[in-house]
């Protein structure tokens, strides 16, 4: 039997009423005490944050449980949607079925649909370990958009102008900690689907880290979701993956960047030369599911 009666004690009606009154009083105080739009007090003229905003690289997006949630979203929503909308035709997928060390994936860019389609083309194992470089000044200008995109596509902010050192450094850290990096070296979406000149950053990154580069080419995504439209429409999409390119000994980053650009151009033209798509023996070996591979472990990211 509980002691006391219904109107007294800790959960009695009088006690509850007084707590409610307390809440109301607080709310009234806050509402009256803080104004917006009124002049600041003269004595506190300067606005400042006590703790400076550290530029976030959204490390949370690459940790559990976000990774599992993302896997679910991509398997359950993105992949079926991509299949239905574009029925993507993927050529050379054996090159990205499994990678024994981190690689830079380079693709042309003509649509916001590129990223989900390319990730779809990668296959589960590689997709799980791929981060996407997304324009910091576009996606991360609005924090909620940045978070949604990071959750869905595992993007990280990539500054297109200014702070090149910083961005290169962060990308290297990601590569070193075992992540593949999907980059669009054109810098922005092509207005008409044709290839635009590549920016040289990819060359630097690859040469500096001795990372192979996998050229990819998407055709048709521009019809799905062109620049300037917000609603995707169904259209067929073809994705070609080329043989990985590695920077040669003594090859400068600029030369290597040119070579990568030529490879993507050749893929766009549909060339099937062995230098580009590999001989059948190379592709056969690349697609060997039985050969045991050292599963790359994700190292903890280097602290700054």
């Amino acid at each position: 039997m509980p002691a006391g009666t219904w109107y007294s004690g800790e959960w009695g009606i009088s006690s509850l009423a007084s707590r409610l009154l307390g809440v109301v009083a607080d709310a009234r105080l806050m509402r009256r005490g803080f104004h917006s739009g009124t002049p600041r007090p003269a004595t506190w003229a300067e606005r400042s944050t006590a703790v400076p905003d550290r530029p976030s690289d959204l490390a949370w997006a690459r940790m559990e449980p976000v990774r599992s949630i993302r896997y679910g979203i991509q398997k359950g929503l993105s992949a079926p949607f991509a299949e239905v909308m574009t029925h993507p035709q993927i050529e050379g997928s054996e090159w990205v079925q499994q990678l024994d060390r981190p690689a830079i994936l380079v693709a042309n860019h003509s649509s916001h649909a590129d990223t989900p389609l390319l990730l779809h083309a990668l296959g589960d194992r590689v997709r799980e370990r791929t981060v996407v470089a997304a324009a910091a000044d576009y996606f991360y200008r609005r924090p909620w958009l940045g978070r949604v995109v990071s959750l869905w596509l595992n993007t990280f902010p990539f500054a297109r102008s200014g702070g090149a050192q910083e961005v290169m450094h962060r990308s290297s850290v990601l590569l070193k900690s075992g992540w593949n990096l999907l980059v669009f070296p054109e810098g922005t979406r092509s207005p008409d689907g044709r290839l635009q000149p590549f920016k040289p950053g990819v060359g630097h990154l690859a040469v500096e880290n001795r990372t192979p580069v996998i050229p990819m080419h998407v055709r048709g995504s521009q019809r799905v979701l062109p620049k300037g439209r917000n609603v995707p429409l169904p259209a067929p999409v073809r994705i070609r993956v080329g043989k990985p390119l590695s920077p040669g000994a003594g090859e400068t980053s600029r030369d290597f960047a040119d070579r990568v650009e030529q490879a993507v151009q050749a893929l766009a033209k549909g060339s099937t030369s062995p230098e580009l798509t590999g001989s059948w023996i190379e592709r056969w070996k690349a697609s060997d599911k039985r050969a045991p591979r050292p599963r790359a472990r994700l190292a903890p990211e280097a602290p700054e």
Partner: peptide
């Protein structure tokens, strides 16, 4: 699948 993706359609 594996033979197909390696050889189709040219070979």
């Amino acid at each position: 699948d594996r033979v197909f993706t390696t050889f189709w359609p040219d070979r």
